[in-house]
Amino acid sequence: MEILNALIQGVLLGGLYALFAAGLSLIFGVMRLVNIAHGDLIVLSAYLALVVVQATGLHPFVAALAVVPLMALTGYVLQRVLLNPTLGRDLLSPLLVTFGLSIIIQNALLTHFTADSRRLAAGPIETASLGIGGGLSIGLLPLAMFLAAVAVIVALEFVFSRTSLGRAFRATSDDAEIAQLMGLDRRHVYAMAMALSAAIIAIAGVFLAVRTNFDPSTGPLRLIFGFEAVIIGGLGSLWGTLAGGVVLGVAQALGAQIDPGYQVLAGHIVFFLILVVRPRGLFPRMD
């Protein structure tokens, strides 16, 4: 029974990891960029939500309505100012610039908010749960996170397959040189991809803030969880990232059953196991 409950927890936790992963996967797909500051941007969003909630007294989920566009704008500017100049060079330039960004965000947050860990109160939803019989129950908040992840992925799939922006993303990813001849400004397309990624980061950040304690140093682990979900799921597949998130969440939940100290470690080990058996992930799509 406990195992079954842990399994359910793990699956739902996978939703959060899919949210961490989706933004990472999106920008890698469009411009082959791996953003080391991804996790720190998630934590930055959590702090933004904290500031908005403290200033307005709004519920965190309502505050997200402000955090999401703010982060999207941040992502857009970040790409135009710092990241576009590094693209088309070697692998190291974008990696280093985002690494630098990661250190800057962590320490700026540390200066401003101290190392104390914070959390956002979301009210009754935090403890509410649905009994599903047999002594099992599903927490409403984890369920909301999972559904949000599914909704984000459905929305991303729609953007990619049905909209003009999505066509621009795919065309630029296929052949950035020729895409320009379609009148597409590459710098703008990339910045839009980063804006979209940052919007998802904002959603993930708000959920992170209500689910668990966070402090300025917690970003890198979020990057790693997102990265593991992407690789487990298979590069370039959005639904794969959800599967990857679920596998990671379940591994961690089962690891925690053995010993709380094994929670994160179990996730890493499953990640490496999958790398051994299926180097291209569960649902590979990209070469």
């Binding site: 040189e177 320009q180 001849l181 379609m182 009148g183 597409l184 400004d185 590459r186």
Partner: peptide, 8 residues
């Protein structure tokens, strides 16, 4: 000139 501007 940038290729996208020439295209337009």
């Amino acid at each position: 000139m940038a290729p996208d501007r020439i295209a337009r």
